[in-house]
């Protein structure tokens, strides 16, 4: 019963975190509508980078996987990326028939909330919209681990909810992964536990507003000192995101495919606790660095 209560609290927290992001995401669609093509991509790119970094983080906290026996773990993961100053602006070019064409540094989605206006011919003006003035982008997701069969466990992330917003609709995240114990093939005296695995995730918002796909594959190592377990991981991450919206200028649907990002990713973390409750914190060094912390309840 106590575990059930903990699960409900954790699910509630994840729901809350996702729902709080929805009004902001809806506003992004309005901001984007002033842009087409390259401007829209430049405006959104930092958020896409952070989203990819977050999704490909926090999906393990130990390299130890039992060889056999039924094991489960319900986990809540909070991942966050801190934006650098470079992410605040992008090189934006006037559009909409504005003359003369000009290119300036304009706020990205995470940049200053102040719009940037440039003067044109005959008293005309062109204004680039402001950003959300964000220091960080964080998200919380629930995940379940189930194992073990011959040193293999499954990792499942799932979240789906209708936020009741007619403009946004449904939010869903599905992640499927597997990890396999390498340690079972090594000398039992080998100083660390080793595992390898992959995870694929798909995030959708609305019928076709945002669709993101993330994939990571890599190896992990950890060593258990009783109630504390340092861990590290090296992986190769891939992430792509597409956004569909209606342009104010053309009145037509626009679809942008943000640059697919691939990067090598080093994770350094530490888990603290004793089963059934383990907390962890980690820092992820990649093209967009991020951090994660979480809580796992299971046996």
């Amino acid at each position: 019963m106590r575990i059930l209560t903990r699960l409900i609290i954790a699910i509630g927290f994840a729901t809350l975190a996702l729902l709080m992001a929805v009004p902001a995401i809806a506003q992004i669609e309005d901001q984007l509508s002033a842009y087409t093509g390259a401007n829209a991509e430049g405006y959104l790119q930092p958020l896409s980078d952070a989203f990819g970094a977050n999704l490909n983080s926090g999906w393990y906290h130990s390299a130890y996987i039992p060889v056999d026996g039924f094991h489960w773990s319900f986990e809540l993961r909070v991942m966050g990326a801190i934006f650098s100053d470079d992410a605040a602006t992008f090189s934006a070019t006037t559009e909409g028939g504005f003359s003369p064409e000009q290119t300036v540094d304009a706020p990205t989605v995470v940049g200053s909330g102040d719009a940037v206006t440039v003067d044109g011919d005959s008293g005309t003006e062109f204004t680039f919209p402001g950003g959300f003035d964000l220091n960080s982008f964080a998200m919380a997701v629930p995940q379940i681990k189930l194992g073990s069969y011959k040193g293999t466990e499954a990792v499942i992330r799932y979240f789906a909810i209708d936020v009741g917003d007619v403009e946004i609709g449904n939010v869903s995240l599905l992640g499927l992964g597997a990890r396999h114990s390498i340690s079972q093939y090594l000398d039992p005296e080998f100083p660390v536990d080793l595992a390898g695995g992959f995870m694929w995730q798909k995030f959708t918002l609305g019928d076709d507003f945002i669709e993101a796909n993330a994939f990571t594959i890599g190896v992990q190592a950890s060593r258990n000192y009783g109630w504390i377990e340092p861990y590290a991981g090296l992986s190769y991450d891939m992430f792509s995101m597409s956004v569909a919206y209606e342009s104010d200028e053309s009145g037509e649907a626009e679809e942008i495919n943000l640059d697919a990002a691939s990067s090598v990713h080093l994770c350094l973390g530490c888990a603290i606790g004793i089963a059934p409750v383990i907390a962890n914190v980690e820092y992820n060094i990649a093209a967009q660095s991020s951090f994660a912390f979480g809580l796992a309840v299971g046996f």
Binding site: L16, A34, G131
Partner: peptide, 15 residues
Amino acid sequence: CLLDEKVLEIVYFQK
């Protein structure tokens, strides 16, 4: 704790 109030300028393009 999690939410921060932001003021942003939005641009509507109208023909």
